[in-house]
Nucleic acid binder design. Structure first.
Length: 479
RNA sequence: UCCUUAGUAGCUCAGUUGGUUAGAGCGGCGGACUGUUAAUCCGUAGGUCGUAGGUUCAAGUCCUACCUGAGGAGCCA
């Protein structure tokens, strides 16, 4: 007899079978004669009800079976006479594998705030909400590899430690083995990184894109999926100092191919969740609906599953930056002065409020914005024929904002070099990158998807710290 | 980093214009109950009011600084 997972027990429902199951106690309740134990092993959102006769086990043993305790139960699966479940386990023997002192165990059989559960992030996967979230997180990881593998993409592990600080995606975390108290100094009085571990200054990566491009210039279709690090002092519900990013890069792709890929990718992932995680989505949806009851009617969002279906079934709106500015400029909001940052014309930087207007009010569906002014975008994005804009694209989602950022890359060496000069990017650090333009250069494109932002959308959670196991944010690096 | 807001029992919160001994619900513990579904009913313990200063006869309540959380903005994925 081997241990069975609760998800399989409930799915097969073989009444009469003798089984052994191990897991953690969610609650125990009962009367003088019988105890009911809600047992969960993390394999499903549903609990297995274990029925224990008080007479058979004694109060001393039952007292150890508290919320949070790990137990093993052997017994017979029987039809349940209660109304909450179809089958239950009639316990023949119970082993308390690890107790949990109810005076001290912080997860109580009651509703907790997400803020409190963040403080006990080491125990929160034991809750219904977080086990659902992390099962979905796994399913999405799996779906991402599936998607790319099915389409002939190769997964590349780009380096996590990098010596280049020219990626331009944000502030970096320095890594060093030098004595922080007493570092070696150069004659000028700066820290002498030539004596450091790598013989030069090193940082954690902010993006695998540049290295990804190198591999796309050889394997044609590649994607990275790894951790990235940003030392920005960003205190929002959409930013993390350590997060996971998926970055496909494809040779011989232009901006339109890139948009097609991004849209197909996102729809595939959402459909995958609808197909494989419905149980957990239903739970998160009901949880969300419960929370929304406290909000005024006009601030409530669409029901989770309805929202996912809507995005999966409808085409994204594709719009150039220039057209977006026109729409925003002529909008009632702008004319009535409702925007905090009024739109005056081409060149205005789009703020969150403008993106939200386009996605949530004007089109009511995801929007892909393209061809931004070159001044507000990165050096490697391909200059358009008008000389003013670049072939960039941002995929904007309701509530979340930018979920994907990408572009067709500048493959023309002379233009790339002059763009780098304009933007003060030191060429000597990126000779290896420029080599791909010198030798067998070709048009190519790619994008980056913030994995946790995707999870925000799929799970309906509103704080990014709740969709990663252990969040790293400014002033927070516990566990 | 900026703006707004909050920090009182294990958790979620109430605490009036500053005024005697700090309150509730849930959770815990003890008891009752012949099958419960966040069980129910009765009883009970539990607090240096975020930290440090200050104002005052008197501070959970007012002021200042700092710490931490939340919402929004910027930066972005």
């Amino acid at each position: 007899m081997k241990n069975l997972r609760i998800v399989d027990i409930l799915k097969l429902g073989q009444v009469g079978a003798e089984i052994t199951v191990k897991g953690w106690v969610r609650t125990r309740r009962g009367s003088k004669n019988v105890s009911f134990i809600a047992l969960n092993d993390g394999s499903t959102n549903h609990n297995l009800q274990v029925v224990a006769e008080v007479e058979a086990f004694g109060e001393e043993l039952l007292k150890l079976i508290n919320t949070g305790a790990a137990i093993g139960v052997t017994g017979k699966l029987v039809e349940s006479t209660g109304s909450g479940q179809s089958v239950e386990l009639q316990a023949a023997s119970i082993e308390v594998i690890g107790g949990a002192d109810p005076e001290k165990y912080p997860i109580q059989p009651k509703r907790h705030s997400l803020e409190f559960l963040r403080e006990v992030a080491h125990l929160r996967p034991r809750t219904a909400t977080f086990s659902a979230i992390f099962r979905i997180r796994h399913a999405m990881i799996f779906a991402i590899h599936n998607f790319f593998n099915d389409r002939g993409f190769y997964n590349v592990h780009t380096p996590i430690i990098t010596s280049s600080d020219a990626e331009g995606a944000g502030e970096m975390f320095r890594i060093s083995t030098l004595d922080a108290k007493n570092p070696p100094l150069t004659e000028e009085g700066d820290v002498d990184f030539s004596q450091d571990f790598f013989g030069k200054a090193a940082n954690l990566t902010v993006s695998g894109q540049l290295e990804g491009e190198l591999f796309a210039m050889a394997l044609s279709r590649i994607y990275t999926f790894g951790p990235t690090f940003r030392a920005e002092n960003s205190n929002t519900s959409r930013h993390l100092a350590e997060f996971w990013m998926i970055e496909p890069e494809v040779a011989f792709f232009d901006l339109n191919d890139n948009m097609d890929l991004a849209e197909e990718f996102l729809k595939y992932l959402i459909n995958y969740a609808l197909e494989h995680c419905m149980d957990d989505l239903l739970f998160l949806s009901s949880r969300l609906t419960e929370e929304e009851k406290n909000k005024p009617a006009d601030q409530r969002s669409m029901e989770l599953i309805e929202k996912l279906r809507f995005v999966a079934e409808n085409d994204f709106v594709r719009l150039t930056y220039t057209d977006a500015i026109e729409i925003l400029k002529n909008s009632k909001q702008n004319k009535k002065g409702k925007f905090q940052y009024p739109i005056t014309g081409y060149g205005t930087d789009l703020q969150s409020e403008h993106e939200r207007f386009l996605v949530e009010v004007e089109f009511k569906k995801p929007v892909i914005l393209t061809n931004y002014p070159k001044e507000i975008k990165a050096f490697y994005m391909r200059l358009d024929d008008n000389g003013k804009t670049v072939s960039a694209m941002d995929v904007l989602f309701p509530q979340i904002g930018e979920i994907i950022g990408g572009s067709q890359r500048e493959e023309r060496l002379d233009i790339l070099e002059s763009r780098m000069e304009e933007m003060h990017i030191p060429k000597e650090d990126l000779e290896w990158y420029l080599d791909t333009r010198r030798f067998g250069g070709c048009p190519h494109a790619g994008f980056g998807l913030g994995f946790e932002r995707l999870l925000l959308f799929v799970t309906g959670m509103t704080n990014i710290r709740d969709v990663i196991p252990f969040a790293r944010t400014p002033k927070n690096c516990e566990f």
